[in-house]
Write a protein that binds this DNA or RNA. Sequence first.
DNA 1: GCCGTTTTCGGCCCGACTGTTTTCAGTCG
Length: 575
Amino acid sequence: MDPRSVGHALSQIADFLELKGENRFKSAAYRNAARAILAVQTDDLAPALASGELAELKGIGPATLSTIRELVESGESRYLEQLRSEIPEGLLEMLRVPGLGTAKIQKIHDALGVASLAELEDAARDGRLAKLPRFGPGTAAKILKGITYLRENSAYMLYPRALAESEPVLAAVRAHPGVESAMLGGSLRRRTEIVRDIDVVAACESPERVAAELARAPGVREAEARGSDAVTIQFVDGTVLDLHCVPPESFAVALWRATGSASHEREMIEHASSRGLSLAGNELRDASGARIPVPDERTLFDALDLAYVEPELREGRGEVAAASARALPTLIETSDIRGVLHCHSDYSDGKATIAEMAEAARALGWSYIGITDHSQSAFYAGGLKPDAVLAQHEEIDRLNSSNLGVLVLKGVEADILADGQIDYDQELLDRFDYVIASVHSRFSMDRETMTQRVLRALDDPHVTILGHPTGRLLLSRDAYAIDIEAVLEKAADKGVAVEINADPHRLDLDWRHLQLAKSLGCSFEIGPDAHSTRGLSNMSFGVGIARKGWLEASDVINTLSATEIRQRLRRRRAS
DNA sequence: GCCGTTTTCGGCCCGACTGTTTTCAGTCG
């Protein structure tokens, strides 16, 4: 069994224990065990279990180890099943409502017998909830808002999960004997940050027969035909596949159409008609109505006298006009990245040592890695007190003189305090090679106060990078209120690079702001925000977002060489 | 339930905000 599945089971046990009102340190122990397991870098835990490696992990003791053993050996845990039978599953769902914790859920369950999201919504609407002691109309309204947020977002998955789920689905479609070839389309191909369904386009000689057969495959809960060649298939685990089966000669246009976006499609159709062509259904036709053969997507763009538009750019944000003027950017590639600047170590809330992180960066072909642990005010993340900073710097000096094959830079992810000050004194800040300044607290400030807070932080000459500039957590927390344009203008003016945080939960700054930021003169840093060596692989998600934002390699500072990045970081300090 | 010992039991991140109260419980990061 893989770490993700075991970790999920342990987290569920922790949730159930909390809902049961067990000693909170007991649930915390299961949560810690889950975290420890998730940090194990393997696809199969069995060998690490057998070798005793798992038993050695900090946070795993006799009880959690026996649960893990059971999960790895049998795929199930009797303890988890036991808890499931005691506590309604609906309470677990309620735990996902923002603003609801275990204590409130227990009260609501005990007093009103509410055991599901739907019942909770009823109780919030009809006033029963507001009448509970220490609840009130404000709490009921907040819970309703939370339920709405959950509903709106629960149909979506983060990009990496959607990508992982698409792999077996695509493989199954390709394995069908009637399918000649198949490709992913939709928002997954456009690399949007959240994805609702998986789109697959399949070329087949008998589209309708293939679609019908795939709709009856094992694991399918229900299927609904949509037109003659498309079928929406829902699998038992909730994954939704939009399958488009088309004859081979229609494949390229069908793929283009299934990739979207809707506004890109509209712009393309208008462009075609302005040139006397028509793009209708899965066909391109000339003025006489004759069908123009389109063997692949590039031919489609060629036929419309357009440069090829990469899927990431197909968002209806001027890409068709730019393709027509041959003015599309040369998008950044993952291979352009030369180093990373946003990584945590075990000095704060990271899992790996600095040496392990550095070795992993070297193995990925990068020439430098910046270690940016949390600053002192970030208690919850083990932020570094000044003496820990000094100790860390000594360790980095030692590592750099030991022939690592990769340069380790002394960075910090320093909190922007409520008043806009950076979380260390100027003397200590002087000791870092660079500073990422991030907001980690007081998210609910009004827009003006928050904007002033961040603008003030940008005035500190130590600040080199503005970390995750809007604070959003995809599918769980909105961005805080801020005048992002004012912030970007100032960042450009001060020479502070704007982060594209590559953690798939963040992907912040949003790609929709990147063209504006670039036009204002901003430079960018793509940061993995890695809390383990595995977290370094977040970089590909960040690069995907940079591409969606029309960025080129030259816009991104961590495409610079180690020598150049050092100069660049010093330059900001001197200005 | 786990950890770390000043070995076998005490402590486990903690401060601010929110909505409720009129002093604080609950949630969040």
